[in-house]
Nucleic acid binder design. Structure first.
Lengths: 214, 214
DNA sequence: TAGATTGTTAATCGATTAACAATC
DNA sequence: TAGATTGTTAATCGATTAACAATC
């Protein structure tokens, strides 16, 4: 429909908007102006209005934005009203933690299974799932219409497994492996490189103490 | 010394440079030109040279960059040669996973302790640490010169605990709580908002299927 | 010296901020 | 209607890309 290009910067701000709007909702605040929101969120009012107008206007002149309506619209933009079928590849520390910790279902992500190559883990119960062997992966993906794979496996196997999953029809990856996946460009990848994040923290500490500012 | 402002965009690319340089090192490749690196990393050669020259020139005209030297210099810029004392607040799924999964020591981060308010967890062994009660937190931080706290606690307590830790001398936070911390501006915060990341994934899937491009 | 590739300046592109007319 | 605040255009700022002189 719209056929507009949304910049990465805007996309990154959307979940944060949603978070602050949820807070306003919790406090039973019905309306908010761009300048009020800008103060709470430490942005400029102009940027907020520009951001929202990437998706068409959600406000009313002279009034501001209805909190509930704005929240719902942004949730829709983020696709949180859609449902997806998700599996986790890698039942190590991180995979298990995400299975237990993330509230996948609340965001429309149906957690359907967890896999690992380590046979000591096979059959282990994680949340309400049993760890399955990698041999069963392809069939499971095809039979259960899996569209998202969470990769919490070592980088050595991540690229290969991702390719395999693309061939089975997986459309998106939440990638925690410390490597850049090689997938066709219509496949969605969202990287969470924890090591990179820790290095950024290190840089900021370092640059504070010494040389360069950031 | 230098007193230059490094943009957020450049900082974010540094760990990725390091990753690819490590790969070249592993393959015993001694030199690399900006244009070779640009092809591997899917960047422009110009951007790479601009990035490096934020910190002074690391290359030789007509030759390129020495892989080992460049790696070491970027590691130094990231402060990976420095040591830090780190604790984890929150011994739930995520806190435990990070304690076990992250190779803190390898990057100069000395993992010194893990804390939780849940007394059922107190004394539980995680890696080579025992979970300590929050009551012992302040003394421990002061006595052990802790400068970094990893926050894997719910957002409801994160802001308060962060303030408390700042008062005890903590200088940096690796924040996994789904909230923006309120700390003085000389305190370093690196956020890992996993929910936000998942929503971005959702957006990208959604925008592929329908309306807007990204 | 000739060839290659950096370091750096200039040009372009994109994102943020400012300004204001439209309108609730 | 008057006041307020959006939606949107224009101005500014910053980051990326292109070009090329410096130099190994």
């Amino acid at each position: 429909m719209d056929e507009k290009t949304i910049s990465q910067a805007v996309i990154s701000r959307l979940p944060r908007y949603l978070r602050y709007l949820a807070e306003l909702k919790d406090n039973n605040i019905e309306r908010v102006s761009s300048s009020e929101l800008s103060q709470i969120m430490n942005l400029t009012a102009s940027q907020i209005r520009q951001d929202f107008n990437n998706f068409g206007g959600f406000g009313q002149q002279g009034y501001g934005y209805k909190v509930n309506y704005l929240y719902d619209e942004i949730a829709k933009i983020l696709g949180l009203d859609k449902t997806h079928h998700l599996i986790i590849i890698g039942a190590g520390n991180l995979g298990q933690a995400l299975a237990n910790y993330m509230n996948f279902e609340r965001r429309g992500f149906h957690f359907k299974g967890i896999f690992d190559s380590n046979e000591k883990l096979h059959g282990k119960k994680i949340r309400d799932m049993y760890v399955q062997p990698m041999e069963d992966l392809e069939n499971f993906v095809k039979e259960n219409d899996i569209d998202i794979a969470v990769l919490t496996i070592p980088k050595t196997s991540a690229v290969k497994v991702a390719e395999q999953l693309v061939n089975c029809g997986v459309k998106a990856f939440w990638n925690f492996a410390h490597v850049d996946l090689k997938v066709p460009k219509d496949i969605v990848v969202e990287n969470v490189h924890l090591s990179d994040s820790l290095m950024k923290l290190s840089f900021k500490i370092n640059s504070q103490d010494n040389d360069f500012e950031h």
